[in-house]
Write a protein that binds this DNA or RNA. Sequence first.
DNA 1: TTGTAGGCGTTATCAA
DNA 2: TTGATAACGCCTACAA
Lengths: 342, 342
Amino acid sequence: MRPKLTLKQIAKELDVSISTVSKALRDSPEIGEDTREKIKAFAKFYNYKPNNIALSLKNRKTKTIGIIIPEIVHHFFTTVISGVEKVANEMGYNVIICLSDNSFDKEVINMEMLANGSTDGFIMSLAKETMQKGDYHHLIEVISQGMPLVLFDRVVDQILCDKVIIDDVLGAQKAVQHLIDIGCKRIALLSTVDYVSVGKLRTQGYKLALEENDFELDEDLILKIEEMEESEEKIEHFLKDKDVDGIFAVNEHFAISAIKYIQEHGKRVPEDVSVIGFTDGELSKRFIPSLTTVSQHGTRMGEEAARILIEKLEKTPGEDEQYRTVIVETGLVKRNSTKSLK
Amino acid sequence: MRPKLTLKQIAKELDVSISTVSKALRDSPEIGEDTREKIKAFAKFYNYKPNNIALSLKNRKTKTIGIIIPEIVHHFFTTVISGVEKVANEMGYNVIICLSDNSFDKEVINMEMLANGSTDGFIMSLAKETMQKGDYHHLIEVISQGMPLVLFDRVVDQILCDKVIIDDVLGAQKAVQHLIDIGCKRIALLSTVDYVSVGKLRTQGYKLALEENDFELDEDLILKIEEMEESEEKIEHFLKDKDVDGIFAVNEHFAISAIKYIQEHGKRVPEDVSVIGFTDGELSKRFIPSLTTVSQHGTRMGEEAARILIEKLEKTPGEDEQYRTVIVETGLVKRNSTKSLK
DNA sequence: TTGTAGGCGTTATCAA
DNA sequence: TTGATAACGCCTACAA
């Protein structure tokens, strides 16, 4: 076992001072040609690489970005991570990931942990519990310490920081408009509870679309689901006595549960009922019928968030502090779960 | 903006020495009751937290684990990460994730980057390109520097280190046995090229099962796919002139592509052809028909890998160096894509 | 009971 | 052209 080489060891080995070695390796013209070459050759041969930790301590920056997300077993978040990773890597940054598990406490702990020197800034999407509690002291703390924070997807108005979101309202509106365009008359909404911002916004888009087309809003056609676990039975129960010809679901799971129920009860998708989901998942592409969806472009969101964060990180702090909210547009991907009834 | 508090600042503020503050905060009995209380109260009030970077430098350990995986947009890897994260968090470790994108170069760069002080050890699954090249110098380098490495899933015999794998051979064998048990006579195998270890092992299991049941091995019934992108057409082409009644696929995608093709060509799954996939994905559960699968238990693999790594990390290095290979067992999850033909 | 000094690995400043 | 020194933030053996 051969532990990592340090400047000190090189210096001793070559019988020069540490600072000479340091300068030589950084190509300082202060150092004479021959010594420089000798040192560089030695370092190269023994594969010297400076210690990141020491550099971090010295420079007071770690060149790493912290990502905190509610869960990773969720295709959307995975795509976001992948986008962040890509940009971060290109810019010489590392990515450290923590999962809050949708728990407020875990989110706070993770954030404090990373804030103590491990990362230069944060990219995060809030835990459900955090949004429910409305307690954002950990975010405020971090910001007030001068660490940049970029919120994405599950964001919150009260916090002043950069944000990357998708046009939830517009995306939902487009989806419902599509259902209306193909002739649906009774359109149900499968949503989450309102304190999850996306649930609220997508519901808003749904209502807007109805309004614009002079459809009457029927609260009976709206289902708000609290827990992912109970979604399947809630949806079944909800659809039992409803006579709908269109369904807009705020995520993939809800959409698929709905389709399953419909198919199992003697109706067909899309012939009798058209279904649209809000999602980016693999499932929608491969499901039979494949799902018409509002695509979320997670990768793009991740890239955008990383770019914004790194820009903040590399800007001298004095400059005018401004916060941006970038809206990543959604697109309607038409597949086989919707079909014109006309 | 209020930058982070340091020992130095506390010391100045309270007019004592830095070491007094340090000792007081660590409850050293050396420090007098009153000074200690005063210091602790001050620190608590201003929410002092020691700087991780400084601690890492001093202790020469970072308390973080590096994960390097080929890709993250892949449910199996996601579940592994989630398992690692869980155990790591419980033990006070952070997790830093890098993606190799299945590229050898990226894998090497990431590894070197993390090895320069950023992490204490590695958990990784090799890039396809790496296995193809058979160049493992970066792994050897890291190990020889005394950093523990745990390989999972895509492992390689030449490297001496801890490993966490699943019983690919047995899992495949069980799957094929199941197909035989329900009456399949002509069983096709949809696999990957042999240099991907899992492809090779699962092929082995397939052959073993046939052998044990005195089935003749028909190489024409075996398809080896090189690139994920071309899988769909390769499978279609392969199935065109084959008259099979059972299919074993080494992953979810292959299985689903096969089902699609079969259904589109006038046959039914599982009535005419039974299909089993090797996977853990969400897709298999929700696909119609839902897929019978060999489950990989990614979470368990992640937990296991993390436990082994941390154990190594916290053991004094002198102790007898031994490498373990933990085999996580697979299970056959019977769903609706297989059915007895008898 | 408190403080001083040295070191973890690096770089920057200044002196030789 | 090279080297000594201090500093980043923390901890600890030892001195006062």
